[in-house]
């Protein structure tokens, strides 16, 4: 029995090493990305204070002014609108799928939602241009001009349709699958005994869901929303196609805006000609990455842990 299987053992060890290498590669990739972007952004970070970068109002690359505030504000607006639209719809849908829907309905609706996740973002953009933008330009915009003069964030003089609202609507639909699938999973993870305990006391299903299920599932639902936010932050093409891309901080949902990802995507072609431009764009990518990482890690560690302690 002494080492007769030498060849097989060596093969096992070599394969293990090779797999370790790919695992290290995959695991390290996210760090490599952050590091790579940081190194490329460093010239700009060295020449300008971070504060000026974040809160500078003017974006004039040819004059060396790289204020990212309009873009950061634009990103926040679009993401906020998207979450405001998506949140109630997604939670209600998740509750329906987890609590009310008969098995047959579930088995039809869930694949549909998965399909939604698979549609390319350019196609969302095309849909936005075909449907959402004209609707805002022809219906909602004029309505707001006529009736919402004094309402903050909703008043407008004129809207071409390419706006924060259009970006938000398209983005909302794009984050549906993320929020719904995670929330549904969380709701279904609430133990049946706890529901039954409430139902046995004579609570209606609605009361049970509101007072027991939702409460138990809250950290997980928060995690779902945070994941949705981080998804929305980084989405590029669809938003780029419908948000209008004017480098000014929007004042109303009918104003055009210019989110960070769109900035990167739109300008990369011309980076070589202007000094520091390339640094500024990779710096924007780094900022975006940091936001997204922050939300993602928060969702997966903090809320994830709260969730585990809560339910099990």
């Amino acid at each position: 029995m002494y080492m007769t299987a030498g060849k097989r053992r060596i093969k096992d060890i070599i394969a293990g090493r090779a797999m370790l290498v790919t695992t290290a590669f995959s695991t390290g990739l996210v760090f490599a990305i952050a590091m790579g972007l940081y190194l490329r952004a460093r010239p700009l970070l060295a020449s300008q204070p971070l504060f000026g970068l974040f809160f500078g109002e003017t974006w004039l690359p040819s004059e060396g002014q790289f204020g990212l505030k309009p873009f950061i504000v634009g990103t926040v607006w679009v993401t906020a609108i998207a979450i405001i639209i998506a949140l109630p719809l997604c939670l209600l849908t998740a509750v329906f799928l987890a609590e009310y829907a008969p098995q047959r309905v579930r088995s039809i609706v869930k694949p549909l939602i998965d399909l939604l996740a698979g549609i390319p973002s350019v196609v969302y953009g095309v849909w936005g241009i075909l449907v959402v933008v004209p609707f805002i330009a022809d219906r909602l915009g004029p309505f707001a001009v006529a009736n919402l003069k004094s309402v903050p964030y909703l008043s407008t003089e004129y809207s071409a349709g390419f706006s924060v609202l259009a970006g938000g609507v398209v983005l909302a639909i794009m984050v549906f699958p993320v929020i719904i699938s995670v929330s549904e999973e969380v709701l279904r993870a609430v133990p049946a005994e706890q529901r039954e305990a409430a139902l046995a006391l004579g609570a209606t299903k609605f009361e049970t869901i509101r007072k027991v299920v939702i409460r138990k599932a809250l950290p997980g639902l928060l995690a779902a929303v945070v994941l949705g936010v981080s998804r929305a932050l980084g989405e590029t093409m669809a938003v780029l196609m419908v948000a209008g891309n004017v480098p000014m901080a929007p004042k109303s949902v009918f104003d055009a805006c210019y989110p960070l990802p769109a900035l990167i995507a739109n300008n990369y072609g011309e980076v070589m000609s202007i000094p520091m431009y390339d640094s500024a764009l990779l710096g924007s990518a780094l900022i975006l990455l940091i936001f997204v990482l922050f939300f993602n890690i928060a969702a997966r560690t903090v809320f994830g842990r709260m969730l585990r302690e809560h339910i099990q």
Binding site: M1, Y2, M3, T4, A5, R8, R9
Partner: peptide, 8 residues
């Protein structure tokens, strides 16, 4: 220590 577990 020199035993091949697979062979065992």
């Amino acid at each position: 220590s020199r035993v091949d577990v697979m062979d065992l």
